[in-house]
Amino acid sequence: MAKLYSSNRLHHLTKLLSLIAVVFVVTGCSDPAQSLMDDYAKRLGRTLALELQDPAPLDLKPLPSITATRADIAETSISLVELVATRSCGLDLLLGERNSSLGKVMPPSQRLKYELAFLKQVHPCLTNPDIAPDLQQKLAVIASDKARQIDKHWQNFLQQDETLRQQLHPYRSLSEPDSAAGVAETMQALHSLLALQQSIAQQNWQQASSINPEQALEVLYKANTLSQLQQSLRFSQNWLHSLNQQLEQLDLKVLCPVGKPTDKAEILNTILLQYFIGKVQLYLAQLDGAYQQLYPLLEQLYQDTALAQPIQQRFEVPNTKLKAELKRHVIWWKAVQQHCPKS
């Protein structure tokens, strides 16, 4: 699994280059969710004789840098003679892996796996009669130090892993309408990481070392659901806010004079039922459903970290604002129905 995930890390650049190629080569290709919103807005604009302006560009503060979130951890070491002596309790292979050229540059996920495996594997050594008492004592001190430091390794994993940070960056496209692709898989991956977090908190090294974080990362990388979701929430909120501001400037009394029948009422009713309720509102409900399932898990995972507030700004804040804009839009439609009743 580690080799598979490591190879996927190499695909990050390939994936980025492919996306750039799509932008330049596949001209005219549109995002289905954005097309849905654009179609609705254009129909409203034509019917209301309103020149609708595009929303302002999205603005987003960058994530705290990897350097700013990195926890410094003191290294421990044992001699080659001591390493060989741990062969009788099976610790030598693990220590040898850490001291290899690749082991010295482990990414955060693999380093976390190593530390958990060490804490699990070291305990039999502390009572093994083939291990000298002075080495047992040294291993006990190292184990105690590593147990105190494991939370720092966990923090480094959460805040520095490439795949996890990728999920917090906006994706180029929005979530697909009428699709729940990736939500169930992403939930499962987040539950797995939360189970690992709990095992670490309980210092249950046996259980913690049995949970491979890279399997969860593999799922998150392939689905990319969190990245799409936060972009969809932010884009939809920004789009609907801009639309509401422009629609509310209309004088509905002028649009539909009292006592004068107009065919606009029928057209507006069709737009309301088929395009707003039947498509836009349905899509926004889909986003909220995914948010309700995924955000609480993400929030729990990152609580008390430097990324907790940026995650809130990317998910909770736009979702709350989107609900407010949706309510505001419904109120506008109620006013339209009052001033422009069907004949």
Rank of each mutant, 00 (worst) to 15 (best):
K113C: 03
L226V: 08
P124N: 08
A180T: 10
L322C: 05
W239Y: 15
I200A: 09
I311V: 02
T67E: 15
I150H: 00
E266G: 13
P107Y: 00
W205R: 00
V122G: 03
Q149T: 07
L250R: 11
L307Y: 03
Y40V: 01
A140F: 04
I267C: 03
P62M: 08
S199V: 01
L240W: 06
L272I: 05
L196V: 07
D251E: 06
S65E: 04
H191F: 13
M1A: 11
W333L: 06
L174P: 03
E75I: 06
E185L: 07
P213S: 05
Q230P: 04
E82C: 07
C256W: 05
L287F: 02
R148F: 10
Y40A: 01
Q237H: 13
A308T: 09
W332N: 09
Q34P: 01
Q312N: 11
L112I: 12
L126D: 07
A285I: 02
I66F: 03
K152G: 02
D39G: 14
E214V: 09
L112Q: 06
N204H: 11
L36I: 05
F24N: 14
T163P: 00
D72E: 15
L297Q: 01
L83Y: 02
N8C: 09
R9I: 12
T69Q: 09
S144D: 15
N319Q: 12
S101V: 11
Q286M: 06
I211W: 06
N8E: 15
A71E: 14
S65V: 06
L17E: 11
A21T: 12
Q188I: 08
D288Y: 11
D92T: 14
A285N: 13
T67V: 13
M187W: 03
H153R: 03
S144W: 03
L268W: 00
K138T: 14
K342Y: 08
P213H: 04
P318S: 07
Q281L: 09
A265F: 04
E299K: 14
P64A: 05
S77V: 04
T69N: 13
H153V: 03
C89Q: 07
Q338A: 14
P257G: 04
S100M: 02
L93N: 12
L80E: 12
N128D: 12
V141L: 13
V26D: 13
S192M: 13
G28R: 01
V26W: 14
S343N: 14
E218K: 09
S227E: 01
L48P: 02
L294E: 02
W205L: 00
M37H: 11
I331G: 10
D304K: 04
N204P: 04
N319I: 00
R314C: 07
E316A: 14
L168Y: 00
Q309F: 13
L272T: 06
A201F: 02
Y221E: 15
T47I: 04
Y302M: 04
L168H: 00
D161W: 05
R328L: 01
L326N: 07
V336L: 08
Q206I: 05
A41G: 04
A308I: 08
G96S: 11
R46T: 15
K138S: 14
L243P: 06
D145P: 00
M37R: 12
L229K: 02
Q338C: 06
